[in-house]
Design a protein around this nucleic acid. Structure first.
Lengths: 133, 133
DNA sequence: CATAACGTTCAAGCGAGGTTGAAGGTCAAC
DNA sequence: GTTGACCTTCAACCTCGCTTGAACGTTATG
């Protein structure tokens, strides 16, 4: 498989795939006699791992340390440990998101249900005070 | 209040505050005769709005469009609409996060409970297949 | 009066995650 | 035998959200 087809199959751009290679995420890539990159079906799976890991919140740097180094195969323990840590991080993020959403909703409510007799500036102070808590 | 004190009160660095000003987030800032910036207490509230909005997932560009332009005051409708959109976005993000977490947990489980008689490479394929669904 | 702790501007740099472009090689089809 | 699609490298550029540094002015304190 040449890079164009791999790109289509993964939904990535060729430049992005080359970028991942140059970032050390794909290991050494086979070449045809003409210099073209040649990918096996495994490459598609590997790219799926990379993009999934990215979506799961791993930086490329983190991903690189999780991928099999050379021909050494996966290192299950470290991998599992990293994923468990990431699950924790995601749980923390979920909490933060929920809090942000709650704050936004509180601000919206604070604006829409402004107490009678409170002018806009004072209401702004009231609403901001809610955020600090 | 000079920039240093504002920085301490908000927990931001002076450079960051100047950066926000140069990004058009703070409007025109008063100056003392010596050229030093002079901030009112409102500035602290404004910076709180900026950083809160950032934490809520607004980019600085988005924040700029939400802040009162000139001396025109807040535009409640647009503001509330933007916040409601952001709440939707956050809800979507929450779903994605939940899905990512579920995938990670599935992968962890796939590794830890590898079926007997399946070698590592085949198990990797099995686990990756789960991710595609 | 010296010195340290502030403040100023402006330009440059960083880190992440890529994209874009120039200059060129390869290959299949017409 | 020439178009056009695809591939190569390498360097430069981009966006975001800042930080850092150089060169310089101001103010409070001993």
């Amino acid at each position: 498989m040449r890079i164009g087809e791999l790109a289509k199959r993964t939904g990535l751009t060729p430049s992005r795939i080359r970028f991942y290679e140059s970032a050390g995420l794909l290991g050494p890539v086979e070449r045809r006699p003409n210099g073209y990159r040649s990918y096996s079906a495994e490459a598609e799976a590997l790219l799926l791992v990379v993009t999934s890991a990215q979506q799961a919140g791993f930086s490329l740097d983190e991903v690189r340390h999780l991928l099999p180094t050379g021909s050494q195969g996966w290192q299950h323990e470290g991998l599992v440990a990293a994923m468990k840590r990431k699950v924790e991080e995601i749980a923390a993020l979920e909490q933060q998101l929920a809090q942000r959403k709650a704050q936004l909703v509180a601000v919206i409510d604070g604006i829409e249900n402004r107490p009678d007799g409170l002018d806009c500036a004072d209401n702004a102070k009231r609403v901001l005070a809610l955020l600090r808590t």
